[in-house]
Design a protein around this nucleic acid. Structure first.
Lengths: 155, 155
DNA sequence: TATTGTTATACTCTATAACTATA
DNA sequence: TATAGTTATAGAGTATAACAATA
């Protein structure tokens, strides 16, 4: 970190990039904000050995015991072939279980193991803290407004 | 499209996935909104043979004549090796030119060709329209608020 | 005939190491 | 010594086709 009393390298005029046009676009701003939050998300979830999608899967299974792979795919926008390895890995780690679906012989109902419940609860607590930190420049009211407007875009 | 008068397949209770927890997270909402806008962006930019990054590069070069690859990388969060092919392709299409940098012999200043200026102007017009369409459920005021809050997150 | 879960595979995007030429 | 641009390559993420078992 540079001390305030030290001379700083002043960028020349040609070093300053004018991105004011891109900043008028909702898509550009949504993508940049999204990436900046997800960056923090990935850092803190690495402690649990979870990627962003792993967390989403774990959390959805926690709140929807018996959910199928198909339902996870539809909810998260992941294609079935790309969920197979992910589910298998969580299974191998002893975090989730695949049980035969009660009414559909083709499907498997997903459930958290006790270890999975523990990890998910911890991860969700971390997520709650992280969310505040990653959007620290927002007031609580602004954060609620932001979420409401974002949902209005994609709902 | 199903007519409103036709009987619809009513999903059973087990089909309804509870994602209310994920919806409390700014990151989840930012990512979903971001993807829904970028989806429309990609569709409409395909007409010009441009991907999202191509558009950003073209627009930044338009508003910053003589900008270097390095500056583009820093502004867009793209790694230098991944920009090389992209720039080369735009060059081959006759949309941009690489001229020797006036003060740094290692760098190349990027400039739009007349064809590039034309395409960029059209694409920016399309982007402006698309933005409104992709966020049609927002009022103009809400759209401005959304952009302000998103910038507060990543700035 | 349609759907769930799966395998295999291809394509795109992103990341790392190392080189060259210039600063 | 450090930086701009480049090459080659590896890894992650995302896509389609096709199959077995079940609806």
């Amino acid at each position: 970190m540079a001390s305030a009393s030290l001379p700083t390298i002043t960028p020349t005029a040609t070093d300053v990039v004018d991105n004011s046009y891109l900043r008028t676009l909702v898509g550009y701003n949504a993508r940049r904000a999204s990436l900046s939050i997800i960056e923090v998300f990935m850092e803190r979830m690495a402690v649990y050995g979870l990627k962003v999608v792993d967390f989403s899967v774990l959390s959805l299974v926690a709140h929807n015991p018996g959910i199928t792979s198909r339902q996870l795919c539809a909810t998260l926008g992941v294609l079935p072939p790309n969920l197979v390895g992910l589910i298998a890995a969580l299974d191998r780690r002893g975090l989730i279980e695949r049980r035969p679906h009660p009414s559909d012989g083709r499907a498997m109902g997903l459930h958290l193991t006790p270890a999975g419940e523990d990890l998910c609860a911890q991860a969700e607590q971390t997520a709650a803290t992280l969310e505040i930190d990653a959007t620290a420049r927002l007031t609580a009211t602004e954060r609620k407004t932001l979420i409401r407007l974002l949902q209005k875009v994609y709902d």
